[in-house]
Write a protein that binds this DNA or RNA. Sequence first.
DNA 1: CACAAATTATTGGTATACGAAATATTCGTG
DNA 2: CACGAATATTTCGTATACCAATAATTTGTG
Lengths: 159, 159
Amino acid sequence: MNETPRQNGTGMVEPLFIHLTKRLRVIARAFNKYSKYLQEHHRITIPQVICLREVHEHGPLTLGALTRIVSLNNSTVSGIVDRLEKQELLQRVRTSSDRRQIHLQMTDKGLHFLTTIPTPVPERFIEGMSRFSDSEIDRIVWAVDQLAELLGDEEHQQQ
Amino acid sequence: MNETPRQNGTGMVEPLFIHLTKRLRVIARAFNKYSKYLQEHHRITIPQVICLREVHEHGPLTLGALTRIVSLNNSTVSGIVDRLEKQELLQRVRTSSDRRQIHLQMTDKGLHFLTTIPTPVPERFIEGMSRFSDSEIDRIVWAVDQLAELLGDEEHQQQ
DNA sequence: CACAAATTATTGGTATACGAAATATTCGTG
DNA sequence: CACGAATATTTCGTATACCAATAATTTGTG
């Protein structure tokens, strides 16, 4: 067996973490699968849809502002915007007086696309959620929020 | 900042999904960050640790068996095993009578590594979890389990 | 004004993560 | 026994996702 030589006073934390890690992996895989489905049928992925929607909602945005909204690294967003621009769903423009900034702007094609594409919500999710009561859904949201708050939040932490 | 989607019925499912997607993104990012930390300090990543631990726990495994345990695509696991094998933490062997299968086997170096490496649990997680009561932790586990079951893989579904 | 420091976005390198195609081997059926 | 179907793994191409380094520009300070 595994006698952890570690000095952790709370012995049950590790199996808890492993359990949650595996379940989160299952969830991530489902998102990934749906992303592939969208890509095949609508030539777009979930991260791309999310970025495009944010640009649409919050008007012309700098790339840096977008990265903060979607919790992604600037280099990641740079690549996503590359692909969105290649499809002419949005465009990079240099309108700011600060010439370091680029602004992301919807194109007509992009606007039309957002009205055409179905809701980016997997059928399974809609079905599954409908089986929960309001208070159960509240509890799920609470739990995910707690985990995000606990682990998340940016700035200087190594672990 | 974000209003939690207070839902009911069917019309509010989309904001609920978007909300959860964003929070899960935050969680995934934290995992990613910790994975980078492990890589820098111990030359291994979270997916690699998870695969190595499974091979250790369940004895010699075929690659296919491992993919089912960790909920990853076979091509993904193939790459992870490549990197673990390059560091000589495990090895591919062809001992089965079925010569299509390869078995994954711990090496002495791999065994030693697992006793040396600290628990693969981020400090933030341990700290954060200690602030919850047992029933709160139960609720978090329940919620993540529900989401995983709801979205998770039951074979061939497109969405 | 000059020039270092800070800011913004891109580029390069590595590690997931997937599906599809290729490869190797075994199994099933005539 | 032959040969197509099924199975196990690897390879290839693409899309995230990160950090570090780079490039371009602006800001701050002497």
